[in-house]
Design a binder for these strands. Sequence first.
DNA 1: CGATGAGTGGTGCCT
DNA 2: AGGCACCGCTCATCG
Lengths: 218, 218
Amino acid sequence: MRIVVAECSAIYTGRGDTKLGKYTRAIIIKDDGAISIHNDKSNKPLNYMGKGSKFTETVHEVTGELVWAFDSRKESLTIILHNVISDSAFELGLEDAGLERDGTENHLQEWIAAHPSVLGEGFQLVQREYPTGSGPVDLLVLDENGKPVAVEVKRVAMLGAVDQASRYVEALTNTESETIDFSEVRGMVAALDIRPNTVKLADKRGIRYCIVPSSWRE
Amino acid sequence: MRIVVAECSAIYTGRGDTKLGKYTRAIIIKDDGAISIHNDKSNKPLNYMGKGSKFTETVHEVTGELVWAFDSRKESLTIILHNVISDSAFELGLEDAGLERDGTENHLQEWIAAHPSVLGEGFQLVQREYPTGSGPVDLLVLDENGKPVAVEVKRVAMLGAVDQASRYVEALTNTESETIDFSEVRGMVAALDIRPNTVKLADKRGIRYCIVPSSWRE
DNA sequence: CGATGAGTGGTGCCT
DNA sequence: AGGCACCGCTCATCG
């Protein structure tokens, strides 16, 4: 990892276009080729480029300043180094095992699949990631009457979760299946937290919802 | 900006839970209080904490290692410094003007507002960011027959864009207004690029769509 | 402070 | 490689 502190400017073109005026910033170049420009605020870099870009260093003909260009297939980032203040490198190694996550939506989905009764008395799991014409739904379950319910799982449910559930119901209705009658399929949102506006929208759409107790991991 | 290179471990609890095993990494502490832990791959930090967390430094009773704790209302990040390799600070200043963007969705929205005929012959702008009961819609326009159309603007439209348009139509239908009759309001997606599945969903929902020519900025 | 949506979102999974 | 949805998304904005 190389860290260059310099007064610099930058221009990016690609998915969008951005310009960065002259100021002192830190430029971080990682061993895998990823590069980012940081000021002294927030975690996100101002400009960046993923690994795999082609690096070329040139010297500006007139000013004599260093110009760094990072080019990939569809994007390019050009940095002008007006004044380099510091340039240091550190050997971190590349075998970092990285982050272990727990309590993700995927874990929550697994847990609900194993405990379908939290969704309602007598609910039974049919399948996780059940395919619909509009992407797979997190859980397909049968309610106490044996009617299918498409369940969208979220840690925090907002409006988009109800939209997703609605879309799955829309896609499943009129679906032909040998084992399940989808003519009366309904939608449901299961989450650790559901926002009030989201509840309102769910009610309006006839989408049910279920709050999973926050102690679910025990 | 302070950069500490150290062999470290970390534990995060909050929105999820993560663990970071012992390895050499760079810890970046910015002047606004944001902190992030980086290995030598990719631009994204492994762990991080936004500005405004409370920092406390303690010494582990048994091992004598430094322990850094960053706590905010709902989250906490604890870093154990097993071995500090380097510790340096740079003065970058806090007046950075930051990034100037161009070609954003907002610019596209402005442009369409100024050129409503790209949406269709005889279309007229009513208002940008028109409030609905479900968030403001990007553009409210009148079609060639004077009927209202709620337009969701995207650079690249995917399924969610159709969901948003649907939600605005749903919220506007039955809306009382002195100047506009919303009983027949329709939805529309305007974008530089619309994915095939998104077109299919729009057709099914009766949401119109419009592809803005990529030369729009000229 | 919560609510909502943009972003050069990134990243992983599946077709 | 493209489509699609999750992420401790982060961040700005607006109420």
